[in-house]
């Protein structure tokens, strides 16, 4: 029998799992926003960078837990709510056990209408998420860091359309954090069968040099041609010369124009 989650979240360990695109990160974001001070987040199944973490960090201040800190997770969970997001590919039966002293909730975020899945038998709590249930889980996860890259918006629009309409293979889930030529940063999110979601992140606009914040793309699907995606993305990025020229124009447009009287004085 599922237990009721405490609200607002209490200190403890919250293991969050579910199929791709079901709304795991979205649910964690909602929890973090109700308890903005002192929550912690980690995504131990992610190798390398974590786009979800970068997205959550842009939404609210959070304490992050990296792989090296996982051994201390029990200690952290006694002090604050700790959310560990588990990718769809994680073997739930192989998860380590945590000390009895740490309250631990296993939460499955599942698309509406799912009656039976491996997550049902694993979870303490079932949360209705979003999107359709995937009959078959993706067998490929492609990740590429794009940190420092700046995109021509018209080109990125084309690549995203191609990516989400099957040009580079069958894509179930795609997300990306992209820096655009006007200095803004956008979050792109796609679930098969649904329209893409685009959201500008509240990061300071970068009008000088290359942006340092994490950006990248993650694609889950079948027979995904990572090389072709990389080629299209590469062709969509601004060169140093073009970026410098573009940023100079943006800075000029921002500078207040001196009035005639000011100029005379």
């Amino acid at each position: 029998m599922p237990k009721t989650l405490p609200h607002p979240p209490q200190p403890g360990l919250y293991l969050v799992a579910g199929p791709p695109g079901g709304g795991k990160t979205h649910w964690i974001r909602e929890q973090l926003l109700t308890h903005p001070q002192g929550s912690a987040y980690g995504s131990p199944s992610q190798s390398g960078f974590c786009l979800d973490l970068a997205y959550l960090e842009s939404q609210t201040p959070i304490q992050t837990i990296d792989a090296a800190q996982l051994v201390e997770v029990a200690y952290w969970a006694q002090q604050r709510p700790v959310y560990l997001e588990l990718g769809f590919h994680v073997d739930l039966a192989a998860l380590p056990s945590f000390p009895e002293v740490v309250p631990c909730s296993r939460i499955a975020i599942l698309p509406p209408g799912v009656a039976l899945s491996e997550w049902h038998s694993w979870a303490d709590d079932l949360v209705v998420g979003m999107g359709p249930m995937v009959p078959q889980l993706p067998n490929q996860v492609q990740k590429s860091s794009l940190t420092g890259e700046v995109f021509d918006p018209a080109s990125l629009d084309v690549v995203w359309h191609e990516l989400t309409h099957g040009a580079y293979g069958r894509v179930q889930r795609a997300k990306g954090l992209f820096n655009l030529a006007d200095g803004s940063t956008f979050w792109f999110s796609f679930n098969a069968g649904q329209p893409s979601h685009f959201e500008e992140l509240p990061r300071p606009r970068c009008l000088t040099g290359r942006p340092a914040g994490l950006s990248g793309i993650e694609v889950m699907g079948w027979d995904v041609d990572a090389g072709a995606i990389a080629a299209s993305l590469t062709a969509s990025c601004l060169s140093d010369e073009l970026l410098h020229h573009h940023q100079a124009q943006l800075r000029d447009a921002q500078e207040p124009v001196a009035t005639l009287s000011e100029s005379i004085l």
Binding site: D152, A154, S155, S236
Partner: peptide, 9 residues
Amino acid sequence: YPSLLAEAR
């Protein structure tokens, strides 16, 4: 060429 990608292609 309305975009960098279109130009490259």
